[in-house]
Design a protein around this nucleic acid. Sequence first.
DNA 1: TACACTATTGCAACTATGTTGCAAAATGTT
DNA 2: AACATTTTGCAACATAGTTGCAATAGTGTA
Lengths: 141, 141
Amino acid sequence: MEQKIIDLLKRSNLSITDSRKKILESFFQEDSALAHADIENHVGQDFDRVTIYRTLQTFVDKGIIHTIPTPDNAVLYALCKDSCSAGHHHDNHVHFICDNCNKTFCLEHVVVPAVHMPVGFAASQIDMVVSGICNYCNATT
Amino acid sequence: MEQKIIDLLKRSNLSITDSRKKILESFFQEDSALAHADIENHVGQDFDRVTIYRTLQTFVDKGIIHTIPTPDNAVLYALCKDSCSAGHHHDNHVHFICDNCNKTFCLEHVVVPAVHMPVGFAASQIDMVVSGICNYCNATT
DNA sequence: TACACTATTGCAACTATGTTGCAAAATGTT
DNA sequence: AACATTTTGCAACATAGTTGCAATAGTGTA
């Protein structure tokens, strides 16, 4: 784990700091997307709120994580897959929000379908967020 | 205009108040979706911030307007079409955000396409937000 | 390993956004 | 017009996010 995180930071040309390691750790430990508050809980009192904001922004810039738009307008972050690089995100997958456990997942293998735009409209990016019940909640209820 | 607004309020079982009339007017005058701040600008100093928040919430509850999720997590509101009713929204259309003029539109005639969910996931609602250049900006640049 | 340079962090202060309780004012009903 | 009910404005509070700056930690080099 520790080594995986250090490698990722090096690959992204970022210096290895305690806060970056701890915050990345949160993402590797959780399979779902995290809100700023989730991360604050995970890292505890160790780091300042501002540091977390700046670290997350840095990770987004470097293509390590991406933000997820949600219908209730909370900002969520999730790890990018390898196809993402600095300044160039490729997260064209569908995001899923479970109404039961409230977790948000990246459906890496579900690609956002094409839509036919009206005349005059040119699409450059498409975000698709699906809500419902996730596989874990469906299995246990 | 005035009469149309009053009728809409009556149909929704809402009392006719100055703030509700003025706020609804904003929506009828703009073809694009409005943020809270846009509305505050439009109605000026006439009403308290809190009143605007509460009025918008009331309109959402009554099915007069709906919220639009955006990738940058700003809350936007737009008029619902007639198929919406209290507690029962039918806004299954695609939303479009122009990267040039920054306005957000409901593409009423573009229905959100179906997606195939992985085993175990049950979808109940799908939001699709497309960004790019709108027809107005494409025509004038 | 120690040094110097650069990047990162913490603190404080600030802005924006949204919420709640309660008394005053406006609305609808008779 | 008078009453009961909603709605509004105010004040205070809560949360989220940003900025400048000084102190600290990380990195490459000798």
